[in-house]
Nucleic acid binder design. Structure first.
Length: 778
DNA sequence: GAGTTTGAAACT
DNA sequence: CAGTTTCAAACTC
């Protein structure tokens, strides 16, 4: 699905198009946040009237602080592994080469403080007019280019939002079909290399708008000393073809001065180099009086022009050149890399990948990085992202391709695979669950098929082995992160019995299920079944073990990573296993039994449900406080009081009415002998037992709404704590964005009950798994 | 690897 | 909502 070229929308008013469902859908696929076609150029009003020269060389167009301009980009389906050396030749395109690239309408804004900003919407450089640098700014358009905050310091450059891997070298190549009549074309390509920080930055946010708006974070700076400096922008397209446009964010940001490695100011230097590199048409721009202006003009203009001309920009000589690429482009690149690695035909593309490109346009990644690619790809598939996050520097190897939409890997499993320690396992599991859910959300958007061998090390190894054997192999695998495969025989993998299905993933090859319908081919069936199950229990697909919300900054990372920071959302019902075997979901999940458990004879090593372990509680509090101090090397796992029942939060939990948990609370929290589920309750319980703190109970009783009490008991956040409960009254954990636990209470002690707001807000509901499910079903 | 145990999920 | 059945994983031998 291609991102529509708005310029091609033709007679239809853009506003209407943007309002159309189709367009919304397209936009939802695209990382580009379509700002309502506001003609952002107050500064540059005369499309077609201004020459490029004027545009770029005359910064005093406006005092507006526009910081960047975008050039809509559509890359094609070429993979180039050209090195920078290859590009050098390509830049020697004579200036008389017809320019056939649609640029963005641009504006250069210079304020009084010499802050220079450029904005460029779309401009068509008419190839017919070879000698003219006058673009046809006949469109304004697609993107709001202004970047409000990029106006502080002189900075020029090309921004690429890169969410690719460390040391990933990506090359975008566009190969726009050349108009036979106007066969003048240059090749548009973009070779990008990324830094790890860049990757992280960009990976963390798929929000295009954020990417646009952030000032420096996530921007790619070419390190002059690095080997990744080569920046190639090639253009291939026909000026008469709007499709030939390409998206590059060029902007100047005055904050960043051109500092040479030598330490000297590099503005002139840059300019000079720019002039040297750029075509004559660009060089004409180099005569500005003001250095900044000139540099801006040169860089921006020349960058854009050179892009269109196929001229190469050597970032080594363009200090401070930032590259920002459309997220989807990067994603696409990454995916391309994946495909490439997988030898997957380029025809197999995720929707998002295909989206921004037209039929013959496609993003291509190249340059398989030597280092393992571990990148988070905004907007890429659920599992891919999850894997990227989960793998933690682990290389993601893709060994198989998948059909259009398919879960291939199972980044997480409800059932841990025998980590080194139980708590580690649990911690990892909780994380995996979260990641799984996160990924799931992403997956629904993009439906990328990624196979993560790193997480499924046993895949393909035990093809002929029996399911159990496979399972145990997987369990015993080295990293213990491998995911299970189901072995369903009767459920057709369409019931929660099936771990795959329950985890929201499709069954994969390693599964030994029989009559499996949990496959992409039966997507509709799967979704329908899922929906049905969700109708029964909205939380059916929520992670069973949920962890404390990460946004509880006060709790610190250690706590978040500790198994004790998680609880089984529903609790177990063990009768014979004493919660000491993996039959018990709590135990299996590495969490202690909690208030909501209905187990008998609980002896859960991670925490018994009954409140009779107060001594252990205190003891382990101390242990916890000690252990949590340990550096998080993955081995030091904090010990959390067994009887501490922290209300778990899970990122996206379905929101259910607040009242849902009232009966539970009423019976269990107040009247039943069951121990409190949360730290607060645990504390309260102690107090009750000791009859020592009547205030607490008063406080509790003052809350006529038991949900409020619940909030207190779970230290739920003031506003984000939307009650989540299963419809059948089984308790589930609400999001926990604001523990009331005092900061110094990593162990869960000293809970501050009175500071809890009475009622959580129903607004600001975080994305829930229910919502996800709904959306995925919709 | 077969059989048993177990408890969650599903059903009534 | 409780009881029963089904199911698949966990476990044992």
């Amino acid at each position: 699905m291609d991102t529509p070229e708005r310029s091609k929308v033709g007679g239809t008013p853009i506003s209407k198009i943007e309002d159309s469902p189709v367009f919304n859908f397209i936009n939802s696929l695209s990382p580009i946040q379509p700002v309502k076609s506001v003609n952002s150029i107050h500064t540059f009003h005369s499309p077609g009237s201004a020459t490029i020269s004027s545009v770029f060389s005359s910064p005093h167009v406006s005092l507006h602080k526009e910081s960047r301009f975008l050039i809509r980009n559509t890359f094609t389906d070429l993979v180039k592994q050209d090195t920078s050396s290859d590009l050098l030749d390509e830049c020697n395109i004579p200036p008389e080469v017809p320019i056939g690239v649609v640029l963005s309408t641009s504006s250069v804004l210079v304020d009084e403080s010499s802050n220079i900003t450029c904005s460029l919407n779309r401009a068509i450089v008419d190839p017919a007019d070879e000698n003219s640098t006058q673009p046809n700014f006949n469109e304004s358009l697609d993107f709001e280019n202004g970047c409000p905050n990029h106006n502080t310091a002189p900075f020029f450059g090309i921004e690429l939002d890169v969410s690719c891997a460390l040391s990933e070298q990506v090359q975008f190549v566009q190969d726009v079909p050349v108009d036979t009549e106007n066969s003048h074309s240059t090749e548009i390509g973009l070779e990008v290399k990324f830094s790890a920080d860049q990757v992280k930055e960009e990976a963390s946010g798929s929000d295009w708008e954020n990417l646009i708006s952030d000032n420096t974070d996530g921007l790619l700076f070419f390190d002059p000393t690095s080997d990744f400096e080569t920046c190639k922008i090639q253009g291939k397209g026909n000026g008469t073809q709007p499709n030939a446009s390409f998206d590059i964010c060029l902007y100047s940001d005055s904050r960043d001065s051109f500092v040479d490695d030598d330490g000297g100011t590099d503005e002139q230097h840059v300019t000079g180099h720019t002039l040297n590199l750029l075509p004559n048409i660009c060089q004409e721009q180099g005569n500005s009086n003001e250095q900044n202006q000139k540099t801006v003009a040169d860089l921006d203009d020349c960058s854009s022009l050179s892009s269109s001309l196929g001229c190469k920009l050597d970032s080594r000589q363009h200090r401070g050149v930032r590259r920002r690429c459309l997220v989807f482009e990067v994603a696409g690149v990454s995916k391309k890399n994946l495909h490439k690695d997988l030898n997957v035909p380029t025809s197999i593309k995720s929707p998002i990948n295909a989206k921004p490109t037209s039929d013959n346009e496609q993003l291509i990644a190249s340059k398989a990085s030597k280092t393992p690619v571990s990148f988070v790809l905004p907007g890429i598939g659920l599992h891919l992202n999850a894997l990227a996050r989960t793998s933690k520097d682990k290389p993601i190897t893709h060994k198989s391709k998948a059909p259009e939409r398919e879960f291939i890997s199972r980044p997480c499993s409800m059932r841990p695979c025998a980590p080194a320690t139980v708590r580690e396992k649990q911690s990892q599991k909780a994380i995996d669950l979260q990641q799984c859910q996160d990924s799931e959300n992403e997956f629904q958007d993009n439906q990328i098929v990624i196979f993560d061998a790193s997480l499924t090390p046993t895949l393909g190894i035990e093809e002929s082995a029996s399911p159990k054997k496979k399972r145990r192999k997987a369990e015993n695998s080295a990293d213990n992160e491998s995911c299970r495969r189901c072995n369903c025989k009767k459920s057709k993998c369409l019931k929660l019995y099936c771990e795959c299905f329950a985890a929201g993933v499709y069954c994969v090859e390693p599964c030994s299920c029989q009559g499996c319908l949990n496959k992409p081919v039966h997507e509709e069936t799967v979704l329908a079944t899922r929906k049905q199950i969700e109708s029964r229990n909205p939380l059916a697909f929520a992670p069973k073990v949920i962890r404390i919300a990460e946004h509880d900054q006060e709790m610190g990372e250690e706590l978040n990573k500790t198994p004790a920071s998680a609880r089984h959302k529903r609790g177990c019902n063990c009768k014979k296993s004493n919660c000491l075997k993996k039959y018990c979901e709590c135990y299996q999940g590495g969490v202690g039994c909690s208030f909501s458990c209905r187990c008998e004879g609980c002896k859960n090593a991670f925490g018994r449900k009954d409140g009779s372990k107060e001594i252990e509680y205190e003891e382990e509090l101390d242990a916890c406080e000690k252990e949590t101090v340990k550096p998080d090397d993955g081995k030091a796992v904090a010990i959390v009081p067994k009887t501490e029942h922290i209300q778990l939060s899970e990122t996206p939990l379905p929101v259910t009415p607040l009242r849902a948990c009232r009966p539970y609370l009423k019976s269990s929290s107040l009247s039943s002998g069951k121990p409190p589920r949360s730290s607060s309750l645990s504390t309260m319980n102690r107090l009750e037992n000791q009859q020592a703190d009547s205030k607490v109970q008063e406080n509790v009783q003052l809350h006529t709404d038991l949900d409020v009490l619940e909030d207190l008991s779970v230290d739920s956040p003031p506003c984000s704590a939307v009650k989540t409960a299963s419809p059948n009254g089984k308790r589930v954990s609400p999001p926990l964005s604001g523990f009331v636990v005092s900061p110094n209470l990593k162990g869960g002690r000293k809970l501050i009950l009175k500071s809890v707001p009475s009622f959580p807000s129903l607004t600001g509901v975080p994305p829930s798994s229910t919502q996800f499910n709904s959306s995925i079903l919709s």
